[in-house]
Design a protein around this nucleic acid. Structure first.
Lengths: 339, 339
DNA sequence: GATTTTTCTGGGAGCGCTTCCAAGAACCCC
DNA sequence: GGGGTTCTTGGAAGCGCTCCCAGAAAAATC
């Protein structure tokens, strides 16, 4: 069994260069290509990846860094969907993927990635407002695509949604339903999504001339903070709660029910993300749908494009979001539910 | 900034070979080492991974293949724990990891891994009785460690638990509590764990002279099959149910409660895995604890050892399991629960 | 002090591939 | 039919590193 290009060249009676061309789709006469391909298939030849990488400067492998605790990673379908999208898009171009999960320190992760050296590019989740890993990656000249972005990342390539606009839209939806004391349970502090959703909420409230002070309680994107946040807001008196994500909203629903209050009659509840379970909460949750899987796909495509054409201008993608209205804000039957 | 060994050699006034020795810990005089190290740090030099791999034949990267549907992957903490264990152990030796999740066909995955070529070795979950991916990997001469193993994998390296013995132990525990009609909800068909747990259950029943026919219903490791399986077994009349894993047991508990039966007085329930939630079910679940994270660690270590010393005999590790008794089989207070 | 042993270092030969260059063959147009 | 294209191919020069070998220097031995 042939192990090198030279052996293959000998077997098929052409030069090494020609075999290389056949493998990489270079210009070769039809006749030669057929002959070499035949030998290629017969021997099951696989070119040595390290040698290709060394000679060509590209490895065909990209890194994906999702720096969250594995606990969260495997619990939140958000990441699962993201990964799925990326692997699909990468596989289309036969690009390998190395995955870094968040179980080491950011500095260690960064060092490892850069030290490793054989990556063509990196996709990294940039959800923190302040993230040395992202900064390091951007500074490293390694082609990098962010999922999410900070203000300062204006000339990096990224895929994101417009959190401010979406939160504004949701808040306006609640205002439009004649809610006046609308509380907000925020996302984790120092995350882009968290802060931007606060801004969007604040914008809508201000525009409507409604007060928001005292109506914002801090959460952390987890169900527990939804429970406690809702308790606090109920005490202060609210007729609607906009939660920074669906998990938080699930917690809020629990607390409200425990208080024997009715959703949405007494208190309307809204979430953000539209993860699978949102439609199956009781009552089904009004939320903002963001296509997480699509974000993964788009991020991968963006990176591949960046690789194909280095020095190309950064590509910034803002994916659309959608207000999904269900019964947690508007009573009665909605969205094709059984009568 | 230095980019190659030669540049570094020039900067520090030694030969390329010497710099290479300093980097790789070869024999170098103290004085030289200090001088070169200084330059190394000052320039932040990183050796080219592809070149090292090509020259040395090792890449310092191993593959991890967890071929389950992403849905399951991200839902079941089992995999999360496994990954965590592996990444920890691999990081100790600065070994990179490429991850293949189960979103492509097995054949595709196999091809990609082998084609990629730059892996030093692979860890793969071998839970299916019949798995072309595992077969292909074992046949490929790529150092491979299985997590779980089939009968035929006798001379591969693997990390596993003794499912037969553990299931036997659990069943005997139930028998020892004077249960006589003990049902079993199996794991997914054609998985090693599923089949072996049936065998262990059967062994214990036979030894005690108890009948098991009609008391085995097929499940699939998921909560749904626990619900339906329990319903079926309740109809046939049982005083205990041994479920193939904790998720199934959770489902069984639901159904039993829905029938207004009491656990464990009317029906005892036992699971397998001791995942985090098992202790928090109502009532807390008697189960078999297997250290999943430890399995990950052990698998990684085994592979690293295999790599250090090729041609070494395969290493087979059977990790211990433990019967964890909680209130789902034995009433009253147990295991440090509040009074 | 001469010889042997050990330690340290530099040179060089690859690892297997890509890719540039140039030469030859085949083809074209007027 | 000659000069110019265009296609196809082989040769050769690396890519940046490891590792073997042999020579030089240092240390140990008698």
């Amino acid at each position: 069994m042939a192990r090198t290009l030279d052996e293959l060249a000998a077997l098929s009676g052409v030069s090494r260069s020609t075999v290389s061309r056949v493998i990489n789709g270079g210009p070769v006469s039809e006749e030669t290509r057929r002959r070499v391909t035949e030998v290629l298939e017969r021997t099951g030849f696989r070119p040595n990846a390290a040698a290709r990488t060394l000679a060509s400067g590209r490895s065909g492998v990209v890194g994906v860094v999702i720096h969250v605790s594995p606990h969260l990673l495997f619990q939140d379908p958000y990441f699962s969907a993201l990964l799925q999208g990326m692997t699909d898009a990468l596989a289309e171009r036969a690009t390998g993927m190395m995955l870094w999960l968040g179980n080491r320190s950011k500095q260690e992760t960064l060092d490892q990635i850069l030290w490793m050296g054989l990556l063509d590019g990196v996709i990294v989740t940039a959800d923190q407002l302040d993230d040395p890993l992202v900064d390091g990656l951007l500074a490293s000249h390694l082609p990098t695509v962010l999922i999410g972005h900070r203000r300062a990342d204006g000339n990096a390539s990224y895929v994101d949604i417009d959190n401010v606009a979406a939160a504004d839209l949701m808040t306006s939806h609640l205002i439009g339903l004649n809610r006046r004391r609308i509380g907000h349970i925020t996302g984790r502090r120092r995350t882009v999504a968290g802060e931007d959703r606060i801004i969007g909420y604040g914008n809508a409230m201000a525009r409507a001339g409604l007060p928001s002070e005292g109506l914002i309680v801090e959460g952390d994107f987890r169900i527990g903070s939804g429970r406690s946040g809702a308790l606090e807001l109920l005490e202060r008196g609210v007729d609607a709660i906009f939660c920074a994500n669906d998990a938080t909203a699930a917690g809020a629903l629990e607390s409200i029910r425990a208080h024997d209050l009715c959703v949405p009659d007494d208190v309307a509840v809204a979430g953000f993300d539209d993860l699978g379970f949102a439609a199956h909460l009781d009552p089904p949750l009004t939320t903002i749908r963001q296509g997480v899987q699509a974000q993964g796909v788009e991020a991968a495509r963006t990176l591949l494009e960046l690789l194909r054409d280095r020095g190309r201008a950064p590509r910034r993608v803002i994916l659309p979001t959608e207000l999904v209205i269900r019964r947690s804000t508007v009573g009665g039957r909605k969205e094709g539910e059984p009568e």
